[in-house]
């Protein structure tokens, strides 16, 4: 096969894998974001915190148990953050919950720095290492595993939102918080649960990301928030598969930018693509138009 074409397909595959990891982090973020339409600055630091916990747990427990434990703990921390940081200021001015969440993120980051230090740590590679070669094209198994996991999560969450009672109640809250609570939906039980789910799947994405690149550091936190947020807004707020597609586009844009231009500016190119798409379609690719009423 033509070497240029091989390079193209290789970049495409890598981009899909990177995008899948972004979308795993973004899916949880999307659910939290669309609930109250408030930016959640704590999400990035929460998932990195969970990844750090799983890293420490792996020294003691078998790997699957460690990851599960870290996911559950991150869910618990997510619920705590909702209870202490969001709920008291839920009806306050728009900026207030954003700022308090940023405060929570900084506190989480400082705790992690005290416990694990400021340096990046080497994360064990949990993904299969080999590859399959077809006509000069190297198909790495780890890319397929990551794409598979993220597809599984997205399909699962979409089914959860559509077909379970809990998921439908969540959609009601997305539509209108006050109406939902008037209809007898226990909003103060469902909202923490969604925050917990966000933390849970965030850590799944975080573990995948860290074992793909073999590194975990606290700098990934705020960066993850931005990536997840960008993916959610790009795909459109309110749907899980929107966040998935947004994450894929972001990953593809970055990977192609670093493959064909320069790796130093890959993030810049990713953002320029997002801003360009959003300027043309402000609601995101799959988002519904929200009409503001007085």
């Amino acid at each position: 096969m033509n070497p240029d074409l091989i390079y193209f397909f290789q970049t495409l595959l890598n981009g899909l894998a990177v995008g899948s990891m972004y979308s795993m982090i973004a899916v949880g973020y999307s659910m939290v974001y669309c609930l109250l339409n408030r930016v959640n600055f704590a999400h990035g630091d929460l998932y990195v915190f969970g990844t750090f916990i799983s890293f420490s747990m792996m020294q003691i427990f078998p790997i699957p148990a460690a990851i599960l434990f870290a996911c559950l703990l991150a869910g618990l921390i997510g619920m705590t953050i909702e209870r202490t940081v969001y709920r008291p200021v839920r009806d306050a001015f728009r900026l207030v919950p954003m700022i308090s969440a940023l405060g929570a993120a900084l506190v989480l980051r400082t705790i992690a720095q005290i416990v694990w230090g400021t340096e990046a740590l080497a994360f064990p590679s949990l993904l299969p290492g080999g590859y399959l070669e077809i006509a000069g094209l190297k198909l790495f198994y780890k890319n397929f595993v990551i794409i598979g996991i993220s597809l599984f999560i997205v399909i699962g969450l979409t089914c959860f939102m559509r077909y379970t009672k809990l998921g439908r109640a969540t959609q009601c809250i997305v539509e209108s918080l006050s109406t939902a609570s008037l209809m007898g939906i226990p909003i103060n039980r469902i909202i923490p649960l969604i925050y917990a789910l966000g933390g849970f799947f965030g850590v799944v994405g975080g573990v995948a990301y860290s074992s793909y690149y073999g590194v975990v550091s606290m700098d990934m936190g705020i960066w993850g928030t931005i990536k997840a947020w960008a993916a959610v807004i790009l795909g459109g707020v309110g749907t899980t598969y929107g966040a998935f597609i947004g994450g894929l586009i972001l990953g593809l844009a970055e990977t192609f930018a670093s493959g064909y231009l320069s790796s130093a500016y890959k993030e810049a190119v990713g953002y320029i693509v997002i801003i360009a798409i959003l300027m043309l379609k402000p609601t995101g690719l799959l988002g519904k138009k929200r009409i503001e009423k007085v």
Partner: peptide, 25 residues
């Protein structure tokens, strides 16, 4: 950074308008 975060948190929970801020907050 952490001290700044705690200050942000406590301010938002107890007094979002800060020391001499606007009533709007």
């Amino acid at each position: 950074v952490g001290v700044g975060g705690v200050i942000m948190l406590l301010l938002m929970l107890f007094r979002p308008q800060g020391i001499m801020g606007s009533r709007a907050f």
